[in-house]
């Protein structure tokens, strides 16, 4: 059983290696931008700026505000860890996860209403389901990440000198928000 022996040079990768990690994350986010870019341009390509009357604008605005607010709480979680305040970190992370949950519930309602008025078989419906679905998938992965850092943070894995895990997940969360900032007007406003 060879995997039991640790590779001696291994720390390189797991220890706090901020420069490479940060760069890697930024590149990853840039790459993701292209995925969202492909889907956003598909929406404009197939339906221009057409948008059905039945869209639930109020709910959409509400969940947008919740999601944007969750970026603030995520930031506060990261800042708390940077100051070694574990309790506040746990609090703000939980708040962030909670808001993400509210957002997802809102999205589920929107999707349900969509099946009634502009189902996937229509051009706008196709674009709608694809963009919302892609984004919801990212919200879910972000939530999984938040859960993992919450769990690890409570067990004392991070500290003010080593919180890359938190930083990475929070940056990703900001990206998920940013993607929504482009998707929301694309589907609801233009």
């Amino acid at each position: 059983m060879t995997a039991d022996t640790m590779h001696s040079e291994y720390h390189q990768d797991t220890a706090f290696q901020p420069r490479a990690n940060r760069l890697g994350l930024w590149f990853f986010i840039m790459s993701e931008c292209f995925l969202f870019g492909a889907f956003l341009s598909a929406r404009y390509f197939t339906t221009g700026t057409f948008r059905p009357e039945e869209l639930n604008q109020k709910l959409a605005l509400a969940i947008t505000i919740v999601l944007l607010a969750s970026s603030i709480s995520a930031y506060l979680a990261e800042a708390s860890m940077a100051h070694n305040e574990r309790k506040r970190f746990a609090l703000w992370t939980t708040v962030t996860i909670g808001m993400a949950g509210i957002f997802l519930i809102g999205v589920a309602i929107e999707l349900y209403e969509a099946t009634l008025h502009y189902p996937p078989g229509t051009p706008y419906g196709s674009a709608y389901f694809m963009l919302i679905g892609l984004h919801a998938f990212h919200v879910i992965t972000g939530m999984v990440g938040l859960f993992i850092v919450l769990f690890l943070g409570m067990r004392g894995r991070f500290g003010s000198d080593n919180y890359w895990g938190v930083e990475g997940v929070v940056k990703y969360w900001h990206f998920v928000d940013l993607a929504w900032v482009l998707i929301y007007p694309t589907l609801y406003l233009f």
């Binding site: 590149f27 840039m30 790459s31 993701e32 292209f34 995925l35 870019g37 492909a38 889907f39 598909a42 197939t46 189902p119 996937p120 078989g121 229509t122 051009p123 419906g125 196709s126 389901f129 694809m130 892609l134």
Partner: peptide, 30 residues
């Protein structure tokens, strides 16, 4: 690391047309 996402995106759309009932490429509306 950038453009490869587009192949994936194209195939995701095909997959959605096949299993999720979307109509990006349908001859009638896509």
């Amino acid at each position: 690391f950038t453009v490869t996402q587009f192949f994936a995106a194209a195939l995701v759309l095909v997959t959605m047309d096949r299993v999720a009932g979307t109509a990006f490429f349908s001859p009638d509306v896509g």
